[in-house]
Design a binder for these strands. Structure first.
Lengths: 330, 330
DNA sequence: TTGTAAGCGTTATCAC
DNA sequence: GTGATAACGCTTACAA
């Protein structure tokens, strides 16, 4: 059976089919005032032909593509996956499309994705990048996550400073007196580094002993485990509270200490950061400071699509909360 | 300092700047033969103005958008996240863009995403859907993952039947004599259901006792845990080998049995399916049948972009492998 | 080799 | 209320 219908009907076809002009068809489609009879004829023709607007042609005219680029290092880390999930849903609910770009933490790829944004006339970018010196031409609107790119680009993040404070307070309230702060960070100065400052400020004001263990993400991991090893004496760990700047790191520490029979949370209490849910058990992987991922996504999209001078260069810190996940005494 | 340069230069601007015609500029950009002098002039002008092609205009002419839709239920499940990560990278490496669409397992959303594909003149779709009766108009090329949509649409999946066989063989070889197969499935007939058939065929041919426990994904989970509970007698579990049709399910079972002091793998050995890596420990969450996710992505993209009559309606089953993850005696 | 001009499928400005 | 028509930025015959 040969199909009579044109597979990709255009507005012209609809005009012909309905016996009306191109302009009228366009008006019907865009909800502009049109005679009732005409409207019905056009709608009938549209249905009959199975017509759908060609968004490319429309974009060419109107200079609006309803598409936003999502630039992220990877989806293999659950935080990024969740974030992308929420960002995409948030965009779709507003009638926008999400163009996903995975950079693999590669500065070149990050830079190139910005070029693609321009070439494809996208309406904006939401980016979580790592390279220190990214050239972002003006004329594209952009919102970053967790990292300030430029003085007049808004950045959305969780309230990292407050998160650090929260972790310290909680550990102290739960009885810890000798704290350890462990972090793996990249060399670039991002918002997450404030977790450290928040943590330290509480320790200092409450006069609690603490140590900071820092590792760059491009260095080997042995030193931190060596450190842990060195501080175990006769089955006892020297610290009674640990704050890790990510749940991933927390997981590694938990594993390491468990293998050495240091019991958590009895001997050491531990708090991570992110609020990652283990899909296998549908529960938090450790007590942690939870980032409001859905809210961060919603906010980023909002700011991008409804630019407001007040937000230029602002750092929007969304509230975090402490959740118990079995590695603290609660 | 006022910038003299036009923010969004077009080919026309480049033509003017270089003193050549539109056509010549176009040729330079598309690598068509052009006089050396002209080429240099044009390139200089492009650089000076910071010109970039407008892909929307280009697509309108050429009817090729270099964009592919990725239709998936969610990114919160690690399997989907990994798959999306690989699909996107695979597309990008070929100069294509990935338009991400999250459906949330909603049939309506699945259907709508297909409409968007048409409207946006995308070059194709890679879809992992759940709704039983999806209308996919012809004229769009599509490849599915794990589920046959239609008789002439290629489907890429892991070799589910072989995976089931592998799991059964492994458990038997490791000494199990009373097996349990647990699966949570959706009501639609997808490729993953073959895991069951493969498993059973081995048990039958080797004459091994086994039981099958089936749960629909829209039903409450209690029954399966009730079943487990009912088969624990005096600290012993009635089965000595379990095959779960996903690592997620396996994780729940592990947890349930551990809480009841049934030791794994000593008393019961267990194999899951998927090959999910726990980012916290960077290791498999259980012994499992690993799906070749990267290869599946690469294959899906390949088939989509280089259509071959031979593949129409084919089911491409990629090889799986057994990996030990601590829940079997190896 | 280079330039002219038509056309891709829309939207928008005008007349009517 | 409706219909020509120009324009969006590009590709591509075809002509020079």
């Amino acid at each position: 059976m040969k199909r009579e219908t044109n597979l990709n009907p255009t507005m012209k076809d609809v005009a012909q089919e309905s016996g009306l002009s191109l302009a009228t068809v366009s008006k019907v489609i865009n909800g502009l005032p049109v005679g009732k009879a005409s409207r019905q004829k056009v709608e009938a023709a549209i249905k009959k032909l199975g017509y759908q607007v060609n968004n490319y042609a429309r974009a060419l005219k109107s200079n609006k593509t309803y598409s936003v680029a999502l630039v992220l290092p990877s989806l293999k880390h659950p935080f990024f996956a969740y974030l992308t999930d929420e960002l995409t849903k948030s965009l779709m609910s507003r009638g926008y499309r999400a163009i996903l770009m995975i950079t693999n933490y590669d500065p070149d790829a990050e830079q190139k994705s910005f070029a693609m944004v321009r070439s494809n006339k996208m309406d904006g970018v939401i980016a979580l990048t790592y390279s220190p010196d990214l050239e972002v031409g003006d004329s594209i609107s952009i919102v970053t996550i967790d990292r300030h790119l430029d003085e007049d680009i808004p950045c959305v993040s969780s309230d990292n400073f407050r998160g650090g404070e929260l972790a310290a307070k909680k550990l102290i309230d739960l009885g810890c007196r000798k704290l350890l702060f462990m972090r793996i960070t990249s060399r670039i100065q991002g918002e997450p580094n404030k977790r450290c400052a928040g943590f330290e400020s509480v320790c200092q004001s409450r006069n609690i002993d603490y140590e900071t263990l820092l590792l760059m993400d491009d260095e080997p991991e042995e030193p931190i485990f060596q450190f842990l090893e060195n501080h175990i004496h006769d089955g006892e760990f020297e610290y009674d509270g640990i704050f890790c700047n990510s749940d991933i790191l927390a997981g590694q520490v938990i594993r390491f200490l468990s293998e050495r029979n240091i019991s958590i949370p009895d001997q050491v209490q531990l708090i991570g950061y992110d609020g990652i849910i283990d899909r296998l058990t549908d529960s938090y992987v450790c007590s942690t400071i939870e980032q409001p991922i859905a809210q961060m996504a919603e906010t980023a999209v909002n700011i991008l699509l409804n630019p407001d001078e007040n937000n230029a260069g602002a750092n929007i810190c969304l509230p975090v909360r402490y959740v118990s996940g079995g590695t603290t005494k609660e």
